[in-house]
Design a protein around this nucleic acid. Sequence first.
DNA 1: TTGAAAGCGCTAACAC
DNA 2: GTGTTAGCGCTTTCAA
Lengths: 280, 280
Amino acid sequence: MLDAAKQLNYVPNLAARSLVKQKSGLIGILINRSNDEGIWKQLRYASFINRLERLLTDRGYHVVLSSLEALNPKLDVISERNLDGIFVVDVISENFHLISSHFSEGVPLIVIDSIIDDALFYKVNFDYKDAFAQARTPLPINPSYLIMDSFNNVELTQSIMDSSGIAPSMIHMVENEEQLKRFLEQHAEKEGIVLNEFIGMLTAKYVNPAKLTVICTTDCPDILPAAVTRIQFNHRKPVEAFQLMMTLLDNPMNGLEHKYIEVKASSIVECEASNNPNAE
Amino acid sequence: MLDAAKQLNYVPNLAARSLVKQKSGLIGILINRSNDEGIWKQLRYASFINRLERLLTDRGYHVVLSSLEALNPKLDVISERNLDGIFVVDVISENFHLISSHFSEGVPLIVIDSIIDDALFYKVNFDYKDAFAQARTPLPINPSYLIMDSFNNVELTQSIMDSSGIAPSMIHMVENEEQLKRFLEQHAEKEGIVLNEFIGMLTAKYVNPAKLTVICTTDCPDILPAAVTRIQFNHRKPVEAFQLMMTLLDNPMNGLEHKYIEVKASSIVECEASNNPNAE
DNA sequence: TTGAAAGCGCTAACAC
DNA sequence: GTGTTAGCGCTTTCAA
């Protein structure tokens, strides 16, 4: 029985197949990470990676996960492993040329949470402008401060600050909990907006949760105290990124004309993309 | 010579190398996940995966991340990609034989958060007995209830319940926030222990944080309210798992005699393993 | 239809 | 040393 099973159980060798087909069946998720990250940075992409990986795995791709040192990202994995598609998350502007140099014609390259004016890259970002507009709607008065996290991609950080409509002096960039606490002591009685629910949770330790509006960017609204007002980005970011990747993989010739996808804030619950478990 | 290769921008093809060397340079991290997971389950392994992946990547390995459906885990990636080493997290007992069937002689197989009496598997688990002992030390009286999460590996779940020394009727297995809330309403004024800081955070919404002791299993103590007593497992689990894997990869012939590694609870801050960036 | 052969890019084992 | 070759396991092509 074991013998018979083994005879019938042919196991394809994907390395050999890759070699001849020039397709690896591997999709890379590359993420900029530093060693000294606060808890909110560590968890920022947990849900995104989880969901994106699931979608890709269900489609029959294998996912290579790789951290990048922000200062010195090693991107060799892209060309060495012949990745069929690449997601890069939160890219430092200075490193885009480095990524380009690892680019192979026809290999979809999607950057997440990064603004870059280069047609080589497809981009999937949140529509923060939309989120801020929604955040202002239910509030009796305008929020007076913004607590947020910085991104490696400074253009994105700047863009968020700009779309918030809040004076730069009233925007606190979270570095550590102690500094956050000190900032909040000066504004305890005012209304504020917080980006990222983990930061929202830290913030709620020090101010009245009822005065907070949190823009949920990490798909974890449940961790927030009940009194907090939430603007939820629907959890479509991984789905959008996945669908874009599939589209690009299906049409290797002609790329799409729209290089930017903006995921809107919304409380509408969307269903998952259908899992069609077969790759190439 | 290396320079010359770089000048010519020669890119080694790892698929071809894998084929001839019979080593892929790939390490798998396989995790049981369900679709309807609560936030605490989704985030349970975020920090572990993050750190483990970093250690492996720094050593020059490439990491394949794959979700498994708990009921029907597809493990083909192991043999198809010729993984050099495999981590499997939170394994359902019934699936161990399935994993065995994908096992190749000499390929290190390390299970995390799983109890299995089979010499094929190396195991890295927390020492919960130690954690509960420490949890009782600082408390004025004995905790009267335990809030915890269930694992796919029922032996582990049972083992934790047993080591807690708390009556089964006073152990609440978290399914959703509503049920948790109802359980807590009956025990609001008593001391309790909580396993997993995300559950601890949810719990702290409904009871006096000062009465809670949280055993931190996900390396995210910062998310807890200040008043909560913490027992921290030091963040050595990914490091231990990594070091064990490296040891096994270095000694392909003779496995170690100790198949269990128990990571103790401790507040001692350990330094990261040295990053020696070269693989095979 | 079925089968044999070439070759993907690399390393190891030979020869010189 | 330096150069050549066989072959890893697969797919594709071309032949019968």
